[in-house]
């Protein structure tokens, strides 16, 4: 990618990044307050407050799984996304099934390199656009919930909507597997064997992603170190 290689451009990126972190932190803090405030306000309207004992019990059960995987997701995905996109992605959600593949797709099309300032810009554009489109689609969908319901709940179309994620990961499989078959073979074979032998793990794919990802990164590291990539 052709960019201004002057120190002025580098200085601009440094200043931009500083601003992004400052604004990002403030916005995320406000978002957390707004998000926690929403159910509490709904409760106030209904004249009730949460059952705090049940909340603590439910939260503990959820946190064991989702706070653990959330920390790992943060450590893995934040460097991929860069600063601006990270602040947006972690408050707009749908990370694995939408934002990460979307940013990766944009990055691939634009030919940017992970960790580079250009990648930061492209990822931010991608996650911001994706979040806005998702918000608009859902807002329009909710407004049209009554007229849209017969179409969306049409029995013939259900298999299509139930298989959006396999369709997404199938398309991504071609993109990434074809880039490096050497890295692909072992994690893919390992995951196929694990899920065939232990189908009970199918409901915990998000945990297995971490195992598979670590395996792929380990293999990639060895190949890279030995100049085999």
């Amino acid at each position: 990618m052709e960019t201004k290689t002057t120190t002025a451009a580098q200085q601009f990126y440094t200043d931009y990044n500083k601003q992004v972190h400052m604004i990002g932190r403030i916005i995320v803090a406000i978002t957390i307050v707004l998000l926690l405030g929403a159910p509490l306000t709904m409760g106030a309207v209904l004249g009730v407050s949460p059952d705090w004992a049940a909340f603590a019990k439910g939260w503990a059960q959820v946190a064991i799984i989702y706070w653990t995987s959330g920390v790992i997701e943060f450590l893995i995905y934040a460097p991929m996304l860069g600063s601006g996109a990270s602040y947006l992605a972690f408050i707009t959600g749908n990370l694995i099934n939408l934002k990460i593949p979307c940013a990766a797709n944009a990055r691939d099309i634009c030919g940017t390199t992970a960790g580079a300032p250009e990648n930061d810009v492209v990822s931010t554009l991608s996650v911001a656009t994706s979040s806005l489109v998702n918000i608009v689609v859902l807002a329009v969908g909710v407004m049209c919930l009554v007229p849209l319901s017969p179409i969306l709940s049409n029995e013939a179309l259900q298999p299509a909507f139930e298989n959006v994620i396999p369709a997404l990961f199938g398309a991504l499989a071609f993109k990434y597997f074809s880039q490096s078959l050497k890295v692909t073979v072992i994690p893919l074979a390992a995951m196929c064997i694990i899920f065939v032998l232990m189908p009970s793990l199918i409901s915990n794919v998000s945990m297995l992603i971490l195992v598979s990802g670590a395996l792929a990164i380990g293999i990639a590291y060895l190949l890279y170190k030995n100049n085999k990539l």
């Binding site: 991929m80 990434y176 597997f177 890295v183 670590a214 792929a216």
Partner: peptide, 22 residues
């Protein structure tokens, strides 16, 4: 960084494809 990024994605997609086979 690029190698890690691609590898992580290969891992992610492999897990899903494996789950579909399962």
């Amino acid at each position: 960084g690029d190698v890690v990024f691609s590898a992580m994605f290969i891992g992610l997609v492999s897990a899903y494809i494996g789950s579909y086979l399962g």
